[in-house]
Simulated scan of single mutants.
Amino acid sequence: MDSSLPLSGREILVTREEKAAKGIADVIKQYGGIPHIVPLISFRPYEDEKESTYLEKLKSYDWIFFTSKNGVHFFFQKLKEHNLSIVGSPTKFAAVGEKTCRAMKSHGIQVDFVPKLYSGFDFAKEFVHSFPQAGRVLLSKGNLAKDTISSYFTERSMPIDEWITYETFFPDAIEKRLSSLLQEKKLSAVTFTSPSTVRGFMKIVNDNGLHEAMNGLAVVCIGPVTREAACRYGLTVQVVPERYTVEDMIDDLANYFISLKENREE
């Protein structure tokens, strides 16, 4: 182990969904840290009561929005189930974040708009400024996603439909593992990438009376929405990157621990 790396020897809890958690774990390892993957959320298809309507109207939308790679994955899964395709259609596409863009491109979709800042509010504000006459919009989202974008559009009398293509659920058999990790008090930090991961974490903490076990644990949130959720549970958040990416989140965590070490040495 290279002791010169900023996260050398530090054990970091990764609460993200299992398939996506590997990316965070790899970055943590690059900084010398020891990742512990305990997926507090998972995803599955959702049967929206208006699904048939959205499918029938699919080619009438001028824009389709995606705010996560899950929104992309489950959207195209739905289309595949119904033998539908939008590749080559005149519809334009907008995405929040680099990973969402990559997911879209893997399905042969050209991204026509990406905001400078990766939050729902910034996305809506930048998009409306750029395309005030956007036409009909469809948003693929999860069941727990906020209505920030749709509210922004509705307030300006701009038509938008929200299609819930997937839902978030809490996996079984992870409570014991997380409880053990917290009780051992070896963790240096916990990373949250969504409000759902915060809720799942705090449910286990509250149900098992593990509040003391969190003493000295740095709390890391990928963006302001997740930080807001953490604060509602009374957590003190030490790290939130300016750019809402996994790489920036872990980089800022590394800098946080470097600052702690330097302050102790003064």
Rank of each mutant, 00 (worst) to 15 (best):
L55F: 10
L55N: 09
L55H: 05
L58W: 07
L58N: 12
S60T: 14
S60L: 05
S60I: 05
S60G: 07
Y61K: 06
D62H: 04
W63A: 11
W63S: 08
I64S: 06
I64R: 04
F65T: 05
F65C: 10
F65N: 00
F66P: 03
T67K: 02
T67Q: 10
T67R: 04
S68I: 04
K69E: 13
N70F: 04
N70C: 10
N70V: 10
G71E: 07
V72T: 05
V72W: 11
V72E: 05
H73P: 00
F76D: 08
Q77L: 13
Q77R: 14
Q77M: 13
K78V: 13
L79N: 06
L79W: 12
E81A: 15
H82R: 08
H82A: 12
H82V: 03
L84W: 10
L84N: 03
S85L: 08
S85N: 11
I86N: 00
I86G: 13
V87G: 06
G88I: 05
G88V: 10
G88H: 11
S89R: 08
S89D: 14
P90T: 03
T91V: 12
T91L: 02
K92C: 03
K92D: 03
K92V: 04
K92N: 01
F93N: 06
F93I: 13
A94I: 07
A94N: 01
V96P: 02
V96G: 14
V96E: 00
G97M: 08
G97W: 03
G97P: 11
E98S: 15
E98H: 12
K99M: 10
T100P: 00
C101S: 08
C101A: 09
R102H: 13
R102Q: 05
R102C: 07
A103P: 08
M104R: 09
M104L: 15
S106V: 05
S106C: 07
S106T: 03
G108I: 14
G108A: 06
I109L: 10
I109S: 02
I109Y: 02
Q110C: 14
V111S: 08
V111D: 12
V111W: 09
F113V: 10
F113L: 00
F113Q: 02
F113A: 00
F113W: 04
F113N: 08
V114M: 14
K116C: 01
L117G: 01
L117R: 07
L117M: 04
Y118A: 04
Y118C: 01
S119Q: 07
S119H: 04
S119D: 14
G120S: 00
G120M: 00
F121G: 10
F121L: 01
D122H: 15
D122F: 15
F123T: 01
A124S: 15
K125D: 03
E126F: 11
E126I: 09
E126W: 02
E126S: 15
F127C: 03
F127N: 03
V128I: 09
V128T: 07
H129G: 13
H129E: 15
H129K: 11
H129S: 15
S130D: 00
S130L: 05
P132L: 15
Q133D: 13
A134M: 02
